[in-house]
Design a protein around this nucleic acid. Structure first.
Lengths: 102, 102
DNA sequence: TTAGTAACTTACTTTATGTAAGTAATTATA
DNA sequence: TATAATTACTTACATAAAGTAAGTTACTAA
């Protein structure tokens, strides 16, 4: 049989099936967030969060903005490509409501 | 801030963000499949495939059926809970078509 | 009898993630 | 003024997850 899966689909899956990426994107749907608030709201370690945010930035899904105030503020938000994942996140929400126990 | 995310959503994410689970479910949307054909079509190692299929069976997403022919045939398919993930898979398909390069 | 396939499991290696501490810049508190 | 705290990270080290390859059991085909 061997590898009949669309490479774009596989790529999408490889991004989304990385641990924490889904939750990061989900959190950012609620608006821009700072590093430390993502860290505490989703419970990911700083080490991995920093790695993931870089990956997502490289994929063009997340945007990093530096506000040169004092102290400096750094915000992470979704690009259009990232916002385009909203329907998918809503479907996960729906599925989890319908099929998982509280 | 700390952990404002719905536990069901988190649970769903923890299942779906396991490496290979998405592709396994996606493949099974096309109908029941045997172990070796999943193995070769998605390129996962037997070791992990066997682990994942057990997890998905425990979650009630995948069903394992033994057909006592000679030689014995074992088929994996989606339960209703698993089939309910189809819209989500279609969203990933759409997103990957719209936003990822070929 | 030897080789092959299906559905795994086991042992071992490599990669990913977690944990905890450290850093640099700034601000608040005693 | 010295000490502690916060933000956004990085680094070093430990543990967990995944990959690789070989082995197992049952059967089948040459």
């Amino acid at each position: 049989m061997d590898k009949s899966i669309c490479p774009r689909f596989e790529k999408a899956m490889s991004i989304l099936s990385q641990r924490w990426t889904g939750l990061i994107i989900y959190q950012l749907l609620g608006g821009p967030q700072r590093f430390c608030s993502l860290e505490s709201s989703i419970g990911v370690s700083g080490r991995v969060l920093s790695e993931r945010l870089k990956d997502l930035e490289n994929e063009g899904i997340v945007k990093r903005e530096v506000f040169p105030e004092t102290p400096v503020r750094i915000e992470y938000s979704l690009t259009n490509k990232g916002v385009a994942l909203e329907p998918l996140m809503r479907d996960i929400e729906k599925w989890s409501q319908a099929w998982l126990e509280a």
